[in-house]
């Protein structure tokens, strides 16, 4: 009793803090209540891989490391040839353990394999840009917002076009050696469309934060801008993608980390 009396304030303060934390947690976007229905954790229910498949995988990994170590002056492209592409690994697992190829891709710690970084086709450098004019198509769309309009920041409602098209698909001119980022920057400026990006020159990396005042996180916490070239999403930055003549560049707004526009990083290979 005396203990309670003595530490009355401390105990009340402690309980209040806990209550405040619980409240904040329930209010927050990542609260389990909000995501219970969606089966985000479905991959956790994988059965353990067969020992033979695992050993084979470990062996293959050892060989890979040995191979890369053998090379005397390994520049980036050499390492690239040494490590298997996601596709080849997939083929391998399909051969060996066809019934649970997904589990075989996991390492012995049962974690998901890291998404293999594709190397950009060519390092884009500013001196590579020539005067040669080439054509490609560009479009900027945000139609996924129309399906998730209730998640959208109420202040941004007026900015979403009726059909979700911010910049209709059209043929645009680019100069040989330019990246997707250069193209977007120029076209948005030319067409008086707002664009905000974050540039990190050290890594030659540009990140598009918002187009037409529609920003990342404006439509839920998994939202943002992604780019797609000829129907697939390169998994490196837009300032690294060197354009080729006839490329079809699409900038799309995702509300679900890419899943709603056809890209799924959580399950890299289907």
């Amino acid at each position: 009793m005396s203990f309670l009396k003595k530490h009355k304030y401390k105990l009340t303060a402690f309980i209040l803090i806990i209550l405040a934390l619980i409240f904040a947690f329930r209010q927050g976007g990542n609260s389990p209540k909000l995501y219970e229905s969606e089966s985000v954790t479905s991959t956790a229910e994988q059965n353990s891989p067969e020992p033979s498949a695992m050993q084979a995988l470990e062996k293959a990994e050892k060989e890979e490391t040995a191979e890369t170590e053998k090379q005397d002056a390994p520049n980036t492209s050499d390492i690239q040839s040494g490590t298997p592409q996601p596709k080849t690994e997939n083929a391998y697992s399909a051969q060996n353990a066809s019934n649970n190829d997904k589990a075989a891709e996991k390492d012995r710690y049962q974690t998901e394999p890291a998404v293999q970084a594709e190397q950009p086709p060519d390092q884009v450098q500013s001196e590579d840009v020539t005067d040669k004019e080439l054509n490609c198509t560009l479009s900027v769309r945000c139609d996924t917002i129309l399906n998730n309009i209730e998640k959208l920041d109420a202040e941004k409602l007026e900015l979403v076009p009726q059909d979700g098209v911010i910049f209709a698909e059209q043929t645009v001119v680019f100069y040989e050696g330019e990246s997707v980022f250069n193209l977007l920057l120029r076209e948005m400026k030319k067409n008086k469309i707002h664009l905000e990006f974050e540039n990190t020159p050290v890594y030659d990396s540009a990140y598009i934060e918002g187009i037409g005042n529609l920003y990342e996180y404006d439509c839920g916490e998994l939202s943002g801008w992604m780019y797609r070239v000829n129907g697939r999403f390169p998994n490196y930055g837009c300032s690294k993608y060197q354009l080729k003549a006839g490329d079809k560049v699409e900038w799309v707004y995702t509300c679900d980390l890419g899943a709603d526009v056809g890209e799924n990083y959580a399950a890299p290979e289907e």
């Binding site: 900015l159 920057l185 905000e196 005042n213």
Partner: peptide, 18 residues
């Protein structure tokens, strides 16, 4: 901060001044 619909000018880095 580059948000806003009224673009006044473009900063040297390429981002708009609103």
């Amino acid at each position: 901060n580059h948000e806003g619909i009224t673009v006044l000018a473009y900063l040297p880095g390429g981002n708009p001044l609103t």
